[in-house]
Amino acid sequence: MQSAATFANPDILRIAYAANIFILVPVCWGMIAPTAAATVFQGAVAESAGLRLLVLSLWSAILAASICGLIAPAFSAPLLLVQIFYKTLWLALFVWPAFRAGAPVPWGVAGTFAAIVVVWPILLVLALRG
């Protein structure tokens, strides 16, 4: 079965996977601590065990999939699309309204998400074109 997209240079995708690993190892490790969500979200999102577990689960799955992406970059490319979509939604539906309302915004996470939303599509295009 042929994939819908053929990457001319799938090695470019390894940049995104390596960046995910570099970002997520310390973040996931830190999320294990009881006060981690408050630290990661800079006090702008209410701390709760459920939120911490949900975020830790999602980011740990992205971390594991990124490790797989280093081995099979083209196969793991949908992971990058998922990241682009969910991070764009979070920026549009949480960060932007909070910013407009003058509410606290976790700028560390928001900045990282914004960078990913901009850079991952560029890497995908470059990988497709070679």
Rank of each mutant, 00 (worst) to 15 (best):
Y86V: 13
G50I: 11
A110W: 13
P26M: 04
A114N: 02
I12Y: 14
F113I: 03
L56M: 10
S57C: 08
T88W: 13
I32T: 09
A4E: 11
W29V: 04
A114I: 06
F94H: 04
M1S: 08
L51Q: 05
C68G: 05
S76M: 15
V55E: 02
R129A: 08
D11E: 13
I71T: 05
T35G: 15
N20W: 13
L24T: 05
V25H: 03
G43L: 12
A4W: 14
C28T: 06
A98D: 11
T39Q: 15
G69M: 10
Q2A: 09
A19E: 09
I32L: 15
V118E: 07
L79A: 11
S60L: 14
P78L: 07
P121K: 02
V105A: 11
F99T: 00
G102A: 04
W90K: 00
P97M: 05
I122V: 15
L93T: 02
A92H: 01
C28I: 07
F75P: 01
W120N: 07
V118I: 15
T112R: 01
A4C: 06
M1H: 09
A103L: 12
P97W: 09
W90R: 00
A37W: 09
F113K: 00
Q83E: 15
P73F: 06
Y86T: 07
G111I: 05
V82P: 02
A74R: 05
L128F: 14
L54W: 09
A61Y: 06
Q2K: 10
C68E: 09
V95A: 13
A46S: 10
F7K: 00
L56A: 10
I116Q: 12
S57W: 06
F75A: 10
A92C: 11
A64P: 03
K87G: 12
P34I: 00
Q83C: 12
L93S: 03
Q42D: 12
R14G: 04
Y17F: 15
P10F: 02
A44V: 02
L128H: 10
A49T: 11
V119A: 15
A16G: 05
A98W: 09
I23C: 12
P104T: 00
F41M: 13
P97Y: 10
T35H: 15
A5G: 01
W96G: 01
P97C: 06
A37P: 05
I116N: 04
F41A: 07
G111S: 09
L54H: 08
I67N: 03
V118S: 07
